[in-house]
């Protein structure tokens, strides 16, 4: 009886996937018929996608999403922004609830098995360490055996403890880790460099600096459903056009992001390609 039920539910799920797959074969047509692009974005992750004082979602990737909507549908307003988090964004996409992910999505082989990526548009820095201004540490190796605050579940935690021998003190949330850093429970706070670069510019954190820079950069791209070729080409074209027009560099300025060589290089390459 149990086996029969299991089989039935599995068959139903498979059927659901099949029909979903066929219905979603042409997202580009769907988007045009609907007259609206549905995008999964972050709403808690400055500078890529976050809330402003009025409660609107803004940010680098939100601007990019609006630009893509304008290219596909003729207006940047023909867009619906769906807030997603790292844990649900891929399910939102594969289930058909959103058309595309622009939500700090790093290109990794594991994800590539499940979805396709658009062309990468940002090279996102990995973890770095924020320390007090007086700190003389500048290398990961120098942190061996020292207590460093971090966040539970971060993808680089294992590297911190196993490769660098750091005594990682991992909290549930960022405010707790920052509080512990202030209390001198740790010598530093390990987090992604983009966030830390912005953090040390805040008035409350002037006594701190990004002491140890990141050791890796991860390309960040949009996420779309597998095998959705026509849609992928259209989105890629829009991204390349934005790069060629220098939009990305403009958004870096607008959202207070340090200008990255990667984005400047891509802008140059895109210009050469389109001319």
């Amino acid at each position: 009886m149990k086996a029969a039920k299991l089989f039935a539910s599995t068959a139903l799920m498979a059927l659901g996937l099949l029909t979903a797959g066929s219905a979603l074969a042409g997202t580009l047509d769907d988007v045009k018929a609907r007259g609206k692009l549905i995008v999964g974005v972050k709403n808690d992750y400055a500078p890529y996608g976050y809330l402003n004082d009025k409660g609107e979602i803004i940010g680098f990737e939100v601007e990019l999403a609006k630009y893509v909507a304008k290219e596909l549908l003729g207006s940047a307003d023909k867009i619906e922004l769906v807030p997603v988090v790292a844990a649900n964004r891929i399910e939102f996409l594969t289930a058909g609830r959103i058309d595309v992910i622009f939500a700090t999505l790093g290109v990794t082989p594991e994800r590539d098995k499940v979805i396709d990526f658009t062309t990468a548009y940002v090279s996102s820095p990995g973890p770095a360490v924020m320390m007090a201004k007086e700190a003389t540490t500048s290398k990961w190796e120098e942190l061996k055996g020292k207590p460093v605050c971090g966040i539970q579940g971060s993808y680089y935690n294992k590297k911190m403890t196993e490769d660098f021998g750091i005594n990682l003190v991992a909290f549930k949330t960022q405010p707790e880790a920052l509080r512990a850093l202030r209390d001198n429970r740790c010598v530093g706070f390990v987090f992604d460099q983009m966030t830390l670069d912005l953090k040390v510019q805040e008035a409350d954190w002037t006594g701190y600096k990004v002491a140890v820079p990141t050791y890796e950069y991860l390309p960040m791209a949009g996420g779309i459903r597998e095998g959705d070729k026509a849609f992928q080409e259209a989105v890629d074209k829009a991204i390349t056009k934005a790069e060629a027009e220098g939009k990305m560099i403009g958004w870096e300025t607008e959202f207070n992001i340090p200008h990255a060589e990667y984005i400047a290089e891509r802008a140059k390459a895109a210009k050469a390609k389109l001319n």
Binding site: Q152, G153, Y155, N157, K158, A180
Partner: peptide, 19 residues
Amino acid sequence: ASVITVPELMYYAGQIYND
């Protein structure tokens, strides 16, 4: 106690399933 970073069983379990 994992909430205040005591590295007990749940602290490590969370990290393992996140990885």
